[in-house]
Simulated scan of single mutants.
Amino acid sequence: MSRIKTLLLSASLLGLSSGVAISAEMTVLASIKPVHALVAGVMKNVGTPGLLVEGNASPHAYSLKPSQAAALQEATLVFWVGHDLETFLDKPLETIATDGVSISLAEAPGVTRLPFRDAGADVHDDHGHDDHKHDDHSHDDDGHSEAAHADDGHGHDHGEGATDPHVWLDPANAKAMTLHIAETLSQADPQNAERYRQNAADLTARIETMTQEIAAELAPVQEQGYVVFHDAYQYFEKRFGLSQVGAITLSPEATPSAARIAEIQHRIEDTGAVCVFSEPQFNPKLVNVVIEGTPARTGTLDPLGSTLPDSADLYVELMHGMARAFKDCLAPAE
């Protein structure tokens, strides 16, 4: 890591709490709410990172505000998932945040990245239930191949070598990301290194407990088929053995064709899928069109924790919230 340059920003601009013990040279930003939560957990009782994508905004189609560009210009460390998710940060990190260091957590040691799936394919068979009940930081990637990305109205071409960026939805990845955050902060701010590492140990233990609780909660609904708005959930599905049968679109920016909607409706009928999930970041009307004439119910998945208050607890809360949403919609009606 390059030598940390002395940077001073107001507490209001950086989102830093007043009276914190963090080094005056350190200013920390996080891109999206799940990343912010992990960074905030590691920085507990030291400082609070700033957040770029707030509320229910989507990182897939975000534009920086002038105040955020100013914060980037003065930032020491910027934690983000990476090029495949926060595309709005690609150029600013090169042209604005020139004095800081950006950390792509998708590339952190121990993080498993999966190739995009073809939203037109039956993905149920990819979700074996026996190989995801483990505690290490990686999956066995044998058997995974690059998903096909033909321009068939299901989404856009993600580019050769692109991987699914929703890595935080596997708690094993979140633990690996947490440890990397702690080491990065410890190098940049050695006086607080011990606290960062202890906070990371506490957070990873909490994530492990959460993983066990979610696994038990979702075990009864593993075989219930469902459809999602866009294919963002394979990390969660593979970890907990869930049975997605299709996605309306690969990319939330792409509007599915009438033929695609009809295809999903047929798939719901053929597979007996019991639920179609929307997301708070996108218009739910499309999901209502998809379920018309089918017995499927609707639910909402929030992979960003957009409705939750920003805090170090947000990651665990959003994962528990997703588990509840799956269970509530997939459980057989009484």
Rank of each mutant, 00 (worst) to 15 (best):
Asp125His: 07
Ala273Asp: 05
Thr6Trp: 10
Ala24Asn: 13
Gln191Thr: 14
Glu160Asn: 14
Tyr233Thr: 03
Ala150Trp: 09
Thr178Asn: 02
His266Asp: 15
Ser306Leu: 04
Gly110Ser: 08
Ile291His: 03
Glu74Val: 02
His158Phe: 13
Pro256His: 04
Pro220Arg: 11
Ala323Ser: 15
Ala108Ile: 00
Thr6Pro: 12
Gly47Phe: 05
Lys44His: 15
Leu250Arg: 10
Pro284Asp: 11
Asp126Val: 10
Ala150Ile: 07
Ser12Cys: 04
Met319Asp: 01
Gln212Phe: 08
Met210Glu: 11
Ile22Cys: 10
Gly41Thr: 09
Arg324Pro: 00
Asp126Ile: 11
Ala296Trp: 02
Leu185Cys: 11
Asp84Leu: 00
Ser102Glu: 13
Asp310Glu: 14
His83Asp: 13
Ala30Pro: 01
Lys327Thr: 11
Arg195Lys: 15
Arg3Met: 08
Val42Gln: 08
Asp142Trp: 03
Pro332Cys: 07
Ile181Trp: 04
Leu286Cys: 11
Arg297Phe: 04
Arg117Met: 14
Ala40Ile: 06
Met319Glu: 00
Pro295Ala: 12
Val39Tyr: 07
Glu263Asn: 10
Gly143Glu: 12
Pro303Met: 02
Tyr233Trp: 14
Ala147Pro: 15
Ala182Gln: 01
Asp126Leu: 15
Gly100Asp: 01
Asn199Cys: 03
Ile207Ala: 06
Lys327Met: 05
His144Trp: 15
Ala172Leu: 07
Ala312Phe: 04
Gln265Ala: 09
Gly143Arg: 11
Ile261Pro: 00
Leu7Gln: 13
Ile248Asn: 04
Pro295Asn: 08
His139Trp: 14
Ile214Gln: 05
Thr294Arg: 07
Ile32Met: 04
Phe116Val: 07
Lys44Ser: 13
Gly299Thr: 00
Asp270Leu: 00
Gly50Val: 01
Thr204Met: 06
Pro59Gln: 07
Gln265Phe: 12
Gly19Ile: 08
His144Ser: 02
Val227Met: 09
Thr6Glu: 14
Gly15Cys: 09
Asp231Leu: 08
Ala215His: 15
Leu169Tyr: 05
Val39Gly: 03
Ala205Gly: 13
Asp122Leu: 12
Pro256Lys: 04
